[in-house]
Design a protein around this nucleic acid. Structure first.
Lengths: 339, 339
DNA sequence: TTGAAAGCGCTACCAA
DNA sequence: TTGGTAGCGCTTTCAA
């Protein structure tokens, strides 16, 4: 494999020193503009780009950030959050020459993965997503001295800036809309209680019911998969006093639940109103269209990437608050009984 | 930031030379096993891991592979292929210490992104996905001397190994099943003609109809989005002699199409049979459940990652053929007229 | 404004 | 089997 040209080749061709080439490429003062042009021209002719590893060895900067995901593959298959989140991240990283180091691991290997990435100097910052109750990752990263941002605030000490997108207003509006339509038995198909985001949605559902003076509806905890959403729906629809509306912790389960109801001969929304969460691409195209709660995953990714690079560069570690999640009403909700 | 321990720290603590530590960490012969243990113990105590950039500068290996995706964010939001594909890739890369460098770009910047990754020595191999008609990427990567694998074979010269998953048997079985059920007007909602995979599905649909002596059904080309699938469906259902069955190039459009039909008062499958492609997680949980064609994206990712690392390490550049895509029959298909 | 040279932490070669 | 050492390609300091 013919070696790529090095800084020395460019320097020779332009008739300057290696230092000058380096300065030219990093936009630093001390190079006459004519010289700089000559250098850049020589580099272009040679097809030169600075070697990433040499630069980061010298720099002590990896120009990369880490994201470790502990999701089982079957959830990944249908996950509407991470692809646009990662695309948003990349949209701010790539222009600055940074890249994202992704790791998919099982939950038990999560801490080890962050540790390994840090010790091998592979990343100079990290993103903590899917916060759990009592999450140890913020403390670990602080100990490793890896700057990080978390998606929303951990329930443990805030050791790094949080980039927050409040999902509660969307959930509250959703539940209130159901209440306004006349529903009094509003169930919730929740995500795993270990996750803060699943907890937050559940708490907001319960709180909104309580604020309206309604009894808490039935609740089932799931693992976020379509199958568990379908099973949970079966269970709630078999109750003697079955709910007339169901709020799901994601669209995947909501879609599965809607089908379960339809298969039982129930009409949506006349016999059962359904609301999801995520506002997946497909939701608006279902029959009936699925009401949902929308979070801007792409924007969240871009914001997290931006705040993280600022944190790395300037130590700016203040939290960032994004526009809250929004309820998107659609045909899957209506008055109980369809009146 | 307190610097991570270096190889010199470990050597000093273990009372050996840096060379010995390096050998111990790379599992190379020439280190007595007692010495090796002492070295590894010292490293563990110090929390040492080899510096990635120093190693790859010395090695001339990036220990990373590149994947450049030219997908618009709105397609990424609902894409059922790349998340599991990437997870499959990582599953074989991570254990060998390699990582994946992802880039999301617009189609015009695709070549530039590969060039930049190669010139900066950031990757030692690449993956070419979403092959297009007359794709220039294989030639570019060959010129850059970057080993690569393509997903399926390009229509241009085969300059690198292809990891192939034939989608035709799945499509053929799907169409033949419709024919066996008595359908004679079978339409196709195709993906963009620039993509080889979209072409392949379309050609197989047409070929299977022809082989059965049936006239080609109506065809609409889309951009793979739910919206375009819905619009295409509207168009075909408005035809005087409307098709009784529709084969879609992905599940996203198939789901949207199914809803369009239902909204028009058509019953699925009695009035319209529907088949998708991808076998998304949600498809089996719809009402009716969506028949589809399944490709193992996770397995494809793992195979592509495996073949690419072999190609990088051993120059093994032979093609790899994976199990073909499989038709998954479900409730969305039936006899025309519902008899 | 420019050039020379000393690292960055590792690998790999050569002697011992 | 071990230790010493010369790079890898870049950044950055210091002299000129």
């Amino acid at each position: 494999m013919a070696r790529n040209p090095t800084i020395a080749d460019v320097a020779e061709r332009a008739g300057v020193s290696k230092g000058a080439v380096s300065f030219a490429f990093n936009g630093r003062p001390g190079v006459a503009s004519a010289t700089k042009e000559r250098i850049l021209a020589a580099a272009a002719e040679l097809g030169y780009a600075p070697s990433y590893s040499a630069r980061s060895l010298s720099n002590r900067r990896a120009d990369a950030i880490g994201l470790v995901l502990a999701r089982p593959p079957e959830l990944l298959r249908a996950d509407p959050f991470f692809p646009p989140f990662i695309a948003g991240l990349e949209s701010v990283l790539a222009p600055t020459g940074r890249s994202l180091v992704l790791r998919f691991v099982s939950a038990v290997d999560e801490m080890a993965a962050y540790t390994e990435l840090s010790r091998s100097n592979r990343i100079d910052g990290a993103i903590v997503a899917d916060l759990r109750v009592g999450d140890q990752r913020p403390a670990l990263l602080a100990e490793l001295r890896v700057p990080f941002v978390s998606l929303n605030r951990p329930d443990t000490a805030g050791l790094g800036p949080a980039v927050c997108l409040d999902d509660r207003p969307g959930v509250r509006d959703a539940v209130n809309r159901l209440i306004a339509l006349g529903h009094t038995r509003i169930g919730h198909i929740a995500g795993p209680a270990e996750f803060l985001h699943a907890n937050s949605r559940q708490a907001e559902w319960a709180g909104t019911l309580a604020a309206a003076g309604l009894p808490p509806g039935p609740l089932v905890e799931t693992d976020f998969t379509a199958g568990s959403g379908a099973a949970a729906t079966e269970r709630l629809l078999a109750l003697a006093d079955r709910p007339t509306a169901l709020l799901y912790a994601n669209d995947l389960m909501a879609i599965a639940g809607m089908s379960v109801a339809q298969r039982k001969g129930l009409r949506v929304p006349e016999d059962l109103s359904v609301i999801g969460f995520d506002d997946t691409e497909i939701s608006g195209y279902l029959h009936p269209a699925l009401a949902s709660v929308r979070t801007d995953a792409y924007g969240w990714g871009a914001a997290a990437g931006g705040r993280l690079t600022e944190h790395i560069d300037n130590q700016d570690a203040t939290d960032l608050e994004l526009p809250a999640a929004q309820f998107v009403p659609r045909g899957s909700i209506g008055r109980p009984g369809g009146s």
